[in-house]
Design a protein around this nucleic acid. Structure first.
Lengths: 284, 284
DNA sequence: CTGAAAGCGCTTACAG
DNA sequence: CTGAAAGCGCTTACAG
């Protein structure tokens, strides 16, 4: 919107010989315009390259038609899927997305993240929380800005949604056990992750429920390397025939060295909007 | 910015007993304010929960402090890395990012994408192009909105940047050959991808340069499954000791079945801002 | 150091 | 079906 080169509603109005009002009506698809007037105005808009000014419109309307999204990063598999889904869902309703990441240097608190978002053209904010964050539990969003958290465990004063991490884990364990394995090994995510904890808990309790032995758990850091390390160890364990890794990356890593001993390796990932995606590797 | 609950500059001015002017000066950190006045105004801002109105500010300033990014999706490994980098680079200069994906239903042209972005609060647009797009070559961006393409091969009328796909490929081939392999197999990306084509060309010409035999190439679709298919075939080829896959996912897939025959499997991925990331798997 | 005035480009009642 | 007026909340010269 370089001021000089911007064609305004005024310009169109003047050229078309109508009031700005009428141009506005045409721009917004009102049907209270005579067809031939509309046509004339549209022709001028086209010719002059008129674009409605976003800022002026938002100022008047009192909303931005835009939702802010805050994530730690956009490059983890889960986050990038969530983001994709948010973007296309928003687009379905003509909403745009403003994305921000939690910066390493600055305070990693909800308060700081929302504070930054309040300077942005957003009508509401979605925060995707993978790690624990110091002010999670008691955080109170400002009343002018709706905030929804995607995180496990509800915050006290803020709407929170999440996928059923625990349920996915038990389902995966049940699935593998139904294939005849004696037990399932687990490569967990880091202790800082709420999701990792729930997945591990689901795995453990599902095994206990069935009465299967609970092998000691490997704790990774979501990265392939950590899965690889676990795989190296597991490759020498004759009892290991099935592994459930807490995310894709670690499963990829584990596969590198646990093949052929482990005849089945399953990995799950929580994707957007409570859709659970399963992936089966090395069908055994 | 729900109009009713929004605290305006006026409100602060009235409460603090100064002019809106002065509030503006405080909000923008001007030093032409008496310290005690500033303090008083800041206290009131704090107490009332004042936030400058983004739309009004943008309308006046004539810019948004925001850059639009258009991608086919945000969930491919390369794209998510690029996005992460763009976001944090932008944040360093207090710019925000508005992200949009090319929708499946709508026209997948630069013209359509930029058209949509012109309705957004953006001062410029970055388009990440993985596939060929019909209006790529001759596309002319509007003069009011700066557009930069990330794509291979320059467009005629639009600034274009890209990583050195070709150079990466030759470097990877050279690296593997230096490890004593007789040749390197290639799992390429789909023919629709410019990047895939350059990577394949780099691979082929590097082998020719060295005088190594050029095995027939496998063409995948970037997904792990296609890499897996290639791996299944290669596992039975005794001459295959090294594979260069055009992206991570296909490399993951290939590894599943080509181990142990292929003693080395390298994959590259083009990441953000012309940084080339290498990953070595199965050091042989 | 501080304020009164004008205006950014649009939309929203209100008249006709 | 069309237009004149007011105002969204801020910033930018211009005075003092």
């Amino acid at each position: 919107m370089a001021k000089s080169s911007q064609v305004s509603m005024q310009d169109v109005a003047k050229t078309a010989g109508v009031s700005p009002q009428t141009v506005s009506r045409v721009a917004n698809g009102s049907d209270a315009v005579k067809p031939e007037t509309r046509q004339r105005v549209e022709a001028v808009m086209q010719r002059l390259g008129y674009r409605p000014n976003y800022a002026a419109r938002a100022l008047k309307r009192g909303k931005f038609q835009d939702i802010g999204v805050v994530m730690f990063n956009t490059s983890s598999f889960g986050n990038s899927r969530i983001l994709d889904s948010i973007i296309s869902s928003a687009a379905d309703d003509d909403y745009s997305i403003t994305i921000q990441t939690m910066r390493h240097g600055s305070e990693r608190t909800l308060a700081a993240a929302i504070e930054r978002m309040q300077q942005q053209p957003v009508d509401g904010v979605i925060v995707v929380l993978e790690e624990r964050i110091s002010d999670f539990a008691g955080y109170k969003p400002p009343k002018e800005l709706p905030v929804v958290l995607i995180s496990e465990g509800a915050a006290d004063h803020c709407p929170t949604v999440d996928t059923d991490q625990y349920g996915c884990s038990t389902a995966i364990v049940d699935y593998l056990m139904s294939k005849g394995h004696k037990t399932v090994y687990h490569i967990a995510g880091p202790a800082t992750s709420r999701a990792a904890e729930s997945r591990a808990r689901g795995w453990r309790e599902a095994l206990e429920q069935i009465g299967a032995p609970v092998p000691s758990m490997y704790i990774g850091d979501w990265c392939a390397d950590s899965g690889y390390q676990a795989g190296v160890a597991l490759a020498h364990d004759p009892d290991c025939t099935a592994i459930y890794a807490a995310n894709d990356q670690m499963a990829y890593g584990a596969i590198l060295d646990c093949n052929p001993p482990a005849s089945a390796c399953l990995t799950m990932s929580a994707s957007s909007a409570s859709t659970i995606r399963w992936r089966t590797w090395c069908h055994g």
